[in-house]
Each structure stands twice: as C-alpha cells, then as structure tokens.
C-alpha cells in the first residue's frame, strides 16, 4: 500500500493493458517461467517428439506407386516388415554400421596422440595454434571438403600423382574413399572432446604414477585411459552418429555403393515412397538409441 502512495507521488502510471499484464507477471513467477520456456519447449516437442511420432506414423502408410499419392486410410506394418526381412536392407545396415565403426576407430586412433600432444606436451602458445588448426577445417563447407576428396582420389588425382613413385595407387571411388573422407571430415569433433578430457587429467597424477615406478604404458593404461574413457566415448558418439546418417559423402566418393542415408534419400526424394523412407529412417534412430543407452552407463554423456 505504501508503495502505491509513493508511486502516486511521483506520477501515477497509466493503467494500460500492457501494464496490467506486466503486473500480473511480476506477481506470479510460475506463469513467468512458463511463458519463458514455452517457446523453446514447444520447439523441442515439435522438432523431436512430433517429428519422431510423424516418422513412425508415416512408416505405417502406403503409397500409390503410379500416381505417387499417399494412402493414409489403411495402416499397415508392411513397410516395417519389409525393412526387417529384406536381405538388401540388412546388407546396407551392416555396411553402414561397419563404415561408421571404422571411421570412429580411425578418428579415435588419430585423435589420441594429437590431443595428448596438445594437452600435455605443447607450450601454451603452440597449444593455442594447434586448437585453431584443428578448428579451421570446420569453417570450410562440408561439400567443399567432400568434393576436394573426390578430385584428390580421382583418376590421375593427387593421391595417384604422389603415390606413383612409391607404387601406391588411389583406392578410387568406393567404400575406402568413403571411410577416408568421413574420417577426415569428422576428425575435429573427436579431437576436441578428447583434448578437453586430457586437460582435466591433473599432471600430478602422471608424476605420481611415474614416481611409483610405472612405465609409460602402465601410466597410460591405468591412469590416463580410465579418466579419459568418457571423453573418448563422447568423441566417438560424434563421429559414429554423424557417419551413420550421412548420404552425401557416399554419393560423391562412394562410387556405386549406398548407405542407409541413400536408401532414405532415394525413397523420399526419387522413388517417392515416403512410408518406406520413414521405416528405413527408423533403423539409424534405433541404432543410436541403443548406442546412447549403452554409453550412458559409462558417464560419457556428461562430457558432451
């Protein structure tokens, strides 16, 4: 009450609608909070929950192969059954999985020494330069990098030219080219979490380990690795999931091969079979859910 009189002495605010709303909001923090988060929440629900549900439902429809119209009246499990039983989809799933796994292993193996050097050996100046060097490729477009590899690996390209004196031949377009390109493109995403993880390993632990007589390998195995494991998994999630859903690189350097993403793309974009595309898209989603559930137990998700 006294507040009101004080305000009135200055100049009474006009009782506009906006002011009434504002007063109400200031009295009810819950409403305020609700309004604040409703937009991002709606966005999340729309993008993730609704989109996933739409995907699942779309997979139950069928499509008229001649006119390309969707038949939404009768729901059927045919698409899901086809995806599960057809040999082709199993082959492609396995191919995609092994590409993703190979890329991940290569990236982790390459990233470990680089990250270790950056975090533990390099001077602060060199460390800063290296962090920038690792980040720089992220500024270039994905397509540019993929096409760069296409010309590098092509007939008479850089690899063949450099390798000729050594008798090395370009692998040409195909799965090896896909693995090389993907490993290159996703490498920064693996180096950075591992680098961050290594920075958090105190140097004193390494000193203590060597004071207690442990050799290099012993220290790596018993001290660094257990501490670093969540960071490695975090990096692996990036390279694995990004490779799993990719269909552009394989289109550019993969020759005649197809991955799961291509099947989704051709069914949605070319064959006009949206329901089958939706059913196929559920495969990588399922794989990722299983993968994430498995790594959740390692605590790696805290490192993302």
């Amino acid at each position: 009450m006294s507040l009101d009189t004080a305000r009135a002495a200055v100049s009474p605010p006009r009782e506009t609608a906006a002011r009434r709303v504002s007063a109400r909001l200031s009295r009810t923090p819950r409403l305020r909070l609700g309004l604040l988060i409703s937009a991002p929440l709606a966005w999340l629900v729309l993008v993730y929950v609704v989109a996933l549900a739409a995907l699942l439902i779309t997979a139950l429809w069928t499509v008229d192969s001649f006119t390309g119209d969707l038949d939404r009246s009768a729901w059927t499990l045919d698409n899901l059954r086809l995806v599960l039983t057809e040999q082709l989809y199993r082959t492609v799933t396995l191919r995609t999985l092994s590409i993703a796994a190979t890329v991940t292993v290569i990236d982790v193996l390459v990233a470990l020494p680089i990250a270790f050097y950056m975090a533990k050996v390099a001077s602060p100046r060199v460390q800063r330069i290296l962090v920038i060097a690792v980040l720089t490729p992220l500024w270039a477009s994905y397509l540019v990098k993929a096409y760069a590899w296409r010309s590098t690996l092509s007939d008479g390209g850089l690899v063949e030219w450099l390798g000729a004196p050594l008798g090395v031949q370009s692998p040409g377009y195909g799965l090896p080219a896909v693995v090389i390109t993907q490993a290159y493109i996703w490498l920064p995403y693996v180096i950075l979490p591992i680098f961050a993880g290594l920075e958090r390993v105190p140097n004193s632990l390494l000193d203590a380990s060597s004071d207690l007589g442990a050799g290099t390998w012993r220290t790596v195995r018993s001290v660094i690795m257990p501490l670093l494991f969540p960071a490695i998994i975090a990096g692996a999630i990036f390279s694995f999931s990004l490779t799993l859903g990719d269909y552009i690189t394989v289109n550019i350097v993969g020759g005649a091969n197809q991955m799961l993403g291509n099947l989704v793309y051709t069914n949605a974009g070319a064959a006009n079979n949206l329901p089958l595309a939706a059913a196929l898209a559920l495969i990588p989603i399922t794989i990722m859910i299983v993968f994430l559930a498995a790594v959740r137990r390692t605590g790696a998700l805290d490192n993302l």
Binding site: L35, S38, A39, A42, W43, L46, V47, V50, A51, A54, T58, D64, F66, T67, D69, L70, R72, L274
Partner: peptide
C-alpha cells in the same frame, strides 16, 4: 512469442506438406 507461434505454424505446415497432398486422390 509471436515468432514462436509463427515457427510452430510454419513447422506444422511443413509437416503436413511432408505428409503429401491428400486433396487430390488418385
């Protein structure tokens, strides 16, 4: 909020467009 509502509307339109056009059956 208007922007969020607009986004919602746009996404809904996009979603229903993705679902294909049912207006002109086969």
């Amino acid at each position: 909020r208007t922007a969020a509502a607009a986004l919602t509307a746009v996404s809904l339109i996009a979603l229903s467009a993705c679902g294909g056009d049912g207006g002109n059956g086969g």
